[in-house]
Design a protein around this nucleic acid. Structure first.
Lengths: 114, 114
DNA sequence: GTAATATGCAACCTGGAGGTTGCATAGCAT
DNA sequence: ATGCTATGCAACCTCCAGGTTGCATATTAC
């Protein structure tokens, strides 16, 4: 197995938390806002939400823990910024899963046809 | 906005559960096994795990509820089979997120350089 | 200097996720 | 006919995710 491929499979433990972080509508919304490029403060991200500022803060910390966003304190506000790496990683993982399924289908097809 | 694109964004509510279903190591392992093509029974999928058959069953039902797998009863056993659609859907969603981020970077770059 | 703003921290509540055990039941093997 | 095998169902336990409220504190605005 190639080192890269081994890496992709071995890091399954580190990927589950990333999926889990995306497994919540509120957090998907936050990601959707932040991936547009504009770093935002907690108050800004709370605007328009039905949730408390504290609730939003907790969600942001969850995203931060897995690296999907990171925060920088600027004066009295902390600005959150999107970081594409973790999502890139699980995208590749999902590609691998799909590829494996396609291969399996091909093998089955070849077997039936021969 | 194109209908397809609107659809991708509007269906955010239906995607969070799919991410959540993948947000567990045990379930990622099950997906990894099943995407290889071979439909498997609960007992087969339990082999090698430290968990109970019932625990594995619950995980399989979680995956089934979001459509990542589906089961067919065959005699006394029920065989679980991988279904690629939900994963294909969230793959496209992640592609969209990444694309939006890249666009934002490009705009920023263009702005700085002009 | 003082008031308003943006966060952080902590305590607390509730529901559901993830596991287990025990028991019932339907198919298979012999 | 009978015993092993594969599941289903239900009750129960523990822990943590997701929310809230209240209060303290650091910045910024006037």
């Amino acid at each position: 197995m190639s080192p890269a491929s081994r890496n992709r499979i071995a890091r399954r433990q580190t990927r589950a938390p990333v999926f889990a972080a995306l497994g919540d509508e509120t957090r998907l919304l936050l990601v959707a806002k932040l991936c547009r490029g504009q770093p935002s403060s907690i108050s800004e991200l709370t605007e328009g939400s039905k949730l408390t500022r504290q609730a939003i803060t907790k969600h942001l910390r969850v995203l931060e823990r897995v690296g999907i966003v990171h925060s920088i304190r600027a004066g009295r506000e902390s600005r959150f910024k999107f970081n594409p790496e973790p999502i890139k990683d699980i995208r590749e993982y999902l590609d691998l899963v799909s590829a494996q399924w396609d291969e399996a289908l091909s093998r089955l097809k070849a077997f039936v046809e021969q």
